[in-house]
Simulated scan of single mutants.
Amino acid sequence: MKQGYIYILFNKPNGTLYIGVTSDLAQRIYQHKHKHIQGFTQKYGVDKLGYYEMFDTMESAITREKQLKARKRQAKIDLIESINPTWKDLYEDIL
């Protein structure tokens, strides 16, 4: 059984947000930062890690991802600011 992570990326404080799910957080953020993933994050320069959670299973992470995506934008901002009030890129912290 693989553990899972949900993560929220941003391009600037209070800017564009992206919520994703992965089994390897460090590798996935690296891919976003180096534009290896085509699409939304590449187009809008969304590559700073603002928030993440770890789960025992990928199923749990996917369930949480769906919950977060259903929330309003302000709830997502509040979640980031609850642990990261300065909007620091947390990527270096997870390495």
Rank of each mutant, 00 (worst) to 15 (best):
I37A: 15
D47W: 01
K33E: 02
A26W: 01
I77Q: 06
A70E: 04
I77E: 07
Y52R: 07
I29N: 03
K48E: 07
F55P: 08
T16Q: 14
D89R: 02
R73Q: 10
K12R: 11
Q31W: 04
N84F: 00
S82Q: 13
R73E: 08
S60Q: 15
G50L: 07
Q67A: 00
G20T: 01
I29L: 03
I6E: 06
G15Q: 04
Q38I: 13
D24Q: 05
K12P: 12
D78R: 03
F10K: 14
I77V: 14
K12L: 14
E65F: 06
L68K: 09
L17M: 13
E92M: 08
M1N: 13
D78Q: 10
P13S: 09
Y7K: 04
G39R: 06
I19H: 09
Y52K: 06
Y5I: 11
E53I: 13
K2F: 06
Q3D: 11
P13R: 14
I8G: 07
Y30E: 07
T22D: 03
L49C: 06
N14C: 12
F10E: 11
N11A: 15
S82N: 13
K43L: 04
Q74G: 01
F55L: 07
L25S: 03
R71D: 04
R64I: 14
K2V: 01
I62N: 10
G39V: 04
D24I: 01
F40C: 12
L9Q: 00
L90M: 14
I29E: 05
R71P: 03
L49Q: 11
I29R: 07
H34S: 15
G4W: 09
I83A: 01
K76W: 11
W87A: 06
G20D: 00
E92W: 15
K48V: 12
G39W: 04
N11Q: 09
I83Y: 01
W87K: 03
N11I: 09
T86M: 08
I62L: 14
P85M: 12
Y51C: 09
Y51Q: 03
Q42K: 10
V21W: 04
N84Q: 00
G50I: 13
E59P: 01
Q27A: 09
L25T: 03
I6F: 08
A75L: 03
K88W: 14
H32K: 14
N14E: 10
H34G: 02
A75S: 11
T57H: 05
Q31N: 14
S82Y: 13
Y44M: 10
D89S: 06
Y7I: 01
I29C: 06
Q42C: 02
E53Q: 14
I62Q: 13
H36W: 03
M58C: 06
M1D: 12
L25P: 06
A70L: 09
W87F: 04
T41C: 15
G4Y: 12
R71Q: 12
G50S: 05
S60F: 10
I37G: 10
Q67H: 02
Y5M: 14
E92S: 12
K66T: 07
L25D: 08
L68D: 14
N14F: 08
M54P: 01
T57G: 08
I6M: 11
K48M: 15
T57I: 10
I77L: 12
M1G: 13
Y18C: 02
E53G: 11
A26S: 06
G15K: 00
Q38S: 11
L68Y: 15
M58A: 05
